[in-house]
Design a protein around this nucleic acid. Structure first.
Lengths: 370, 370
DNA sequence: TTGAAAGCGCTAACAT
DNA sequence: ATGTTAGCGCTTTCAA
């Protein structure tokens, strides 16, 4: 039976390279004994239909298994039910996929579907993507980047409603949604300070990233506000190198800082990947988390944060919500509703787990037995 | 300037809910002084065109910025340049996203784009997805699952060319591509045996997963072949509970096994997440990897495998290649080429890193200083 | 090598 | 409350 189905494809495909003629609105009309226009009205829920007629038509639709032809509809109305999604994923870093999921989920109740293109951060591919979108008469585009960043100043966005997610243009003329990395960084450090830490180190994200800049400034500002002096030797890089080809060096650097009687009681990590390495560095030295060192991450990348023991306290990036908001914004724009805010910075929320505690009282020595 | 662009959208959208009339083949024809049919020939590279005519047309296309209207083309030909992608992602597990990337990358040189739908493993949504695909006249679909599994026996696949990726139907009537978890499991254990291990534990994947079954059988078979007796108390669950709501228990279980003078010298982990917990368990006990325990993972989930110290030796799931193969198969089917193989099991390759060494000589005591 | 005519399935605009 | 007509942009078919 299923085998026949397969055979079917091969037949159809071999013979003519096309599927059976679709059952059209006319077929439905004929069966229901009404005009095609009436069927169209029913399909699009236009009202001004006698309930009885409606029933008849719906039954005909049912028995014929009619589905509307979006291509025809688009041709007539120039209103597509497809939105474009551009991502710039590269390599195996699975970050920010939750943005896409947030978008997909939010689109779920609507009539919209997503045409997705991945540019691998290649400008040529990106241009091609926009062309594909034009070819398909797409009505709006989500432009999603893997890392929080500015879009290059000379990027030309076609005149299709577009929402930037996880990135923004320097002029902030294109609607955009980004995480508030600065606030997140501030709150992360504050959390440590509130728990009594004053000897705080910082293992920095790749400094080429905008997030690194934002979170880094937050670190310095938060310490300044708390009246804590920054120990320069305790601010070390966690990743170095070109952005899609960088190298994790958090382990070595954290190990060096920690391997010293005068060591920090808490470490702020540029993100959860770095936090993982800092963990490894701590345990490599026989130090316990959080008893000997508190560690706080950033991103809430759950494979890491809920996978390690003890689970990692971290600053969550509001990816799903950003995706949901992007959908609301884009649909609003398409519907012609003016936007109050063109650029929104979405709040990061602290996720409390078990990698942060109060620092041990000065003088007490680390216990390192099971 | 960019602001004007925005204003533009709002104008257009508010006034009529549609974009400017597309520049059509006729406009090009008029400018080039030829018939529309001729333009069509050029656009589709049909040959039988005088080079001079071709030039003229191409120039007109250029100056007008013409892009073909896929909707119109589809209507006429019933051959869509869009393929469907169904995924069943749920929760925050980022597994198997590389399959999707493999597909996207392989599609890159072609004229095809992807319409993606995420079902969240909800049958109603899945059915809706197929309808959406029909509405868009989609020519083929990739059905990608997050976990290697069988598709439920009663799943009805519409008569659209479909390739199952990371799953298969029990009858293997639908073309499908899955990883060879059994071979992978076998090779993983063999690697340990070759390094001299005979005291080998196994922290099992959620036993509801097909991969767990396959990898599990491989574990027992490999030990049997090597003439090693299985220690039942060293085979423990790493995850328990319903599939999309399971709980990691690898840490506790690994810790219990390891916290014993008579402990395994190597641990096979159901996947890399579990391996991460086993690491934590080992270091929690002051044990060193790989000196005191060797650990081998499964999946090559790089955030983990290259993030922890020492980096994790693991059995890689050939996700990208599976995606690429899926593209080849689907395009072949659409083109009417018969398939030699309907069901392929893709080989897993061992990735050597630093979490496996030979077991310490019996009698030598563990050193646990820095 | 090129062109003319027809029609894919749908809905806007206008009847009735 | 329902029907008629026309045409969106393209390619197929046939003719020149």
């Amino acid at each position: 039976m299923v085998l026949e189905m397969l055979f079917d494809w091969e037949q159809r495909v071999a013979h003519m390279g096309m599927r059976d003629r679709m059952v059209s609105i006319k077929d439905v009309a004929a069966l229901a004994g009404v005009s095609d226009r009436t069927v169209s009205r029913v399909v699009n829920g236009e009202g001004l239909i006698r309930p009885k007629t409606k029933k008849k038509v719906q039954k005909a639709i049912e028995t014929l298994g009619y589905v509307p032809n979006q291509a025809a509809r688009l041709m007539r109305t120039s209103r597509s039910n497809v939105l474009g999604l551009i991502t710039d994923v590269v390599s195996t870093t699975p970050f920010s996929t939750d943005i896409v999921r947030g978008i997909q989920d939010a689109l779920d109740g609507t009539s919209y579907t997503l045409l997705t293109v991945n540019t691998s951060a290649d400008p040529a591919k990106e241009q091609r993507a926009w062309q594909v979108f034009r070819e398909h008469g797409i009505g709006g585009v989500f432009y999603v980047t893997m890392f929080h960043r500015h879009v290059p100043r000379d990027t030309e966005f076609p005149s299709t409603p577009t929402v930037l997610v996880n990135c923004s243009d320097p002029e902030q003329a294109i609607p955009s949604i980004v995480p508030d990395d600065y606030q997140g960084g501030l709150d992360a450090v504050r959390h440590l300070v509130e728990r009594g830490h004053r000897k705080i180190a910082y293992v920095v994200l790749n400094e080429l990233l905008l997030a690194a800049d934002l979170r880094g400034r937050a670190f310095f500002d938060a310490l300044a506000t708390a009246g804590i002096e920054v120990r320069k030797e305790w601010v070390v890089p966690g990743r170095v190198g070109a952005i899609f080809a960088d190298k994790l060096v958090a382990f070595e650097n954290a190990r060096r800082i920690l391997n010293n009687p005068d060591r920090p009681t808490a470490i702020v990590c540029g993100n959860d990947e770095i936090a993982l390495q800092v963990y490894c560095a701590a345990t490599d030295l026989g130090l316990r988390v959080p008893d000997d060192v508190s560690i706080i991450g950033f991103d809430d990348f759950q494979v890491i944060t809920t996978g390690i023991q003890p689970p990692l306290t971290t600053m969550a990036l509001p990816y799903r919500d950003m995706g949901a908001l992007a959908v609301r914004m884009l649909l609003d724009i398409i519907a012609g509703h003016p936007q109050k805010k063109k650029h929104v910075e979405y709040r990061c929320e602290l996720v409390l787990r078990n990698s942060v505690s109060s620092p041990r009282l000065p003088g007490a020595r680390s216990a390192n037995s099971t």
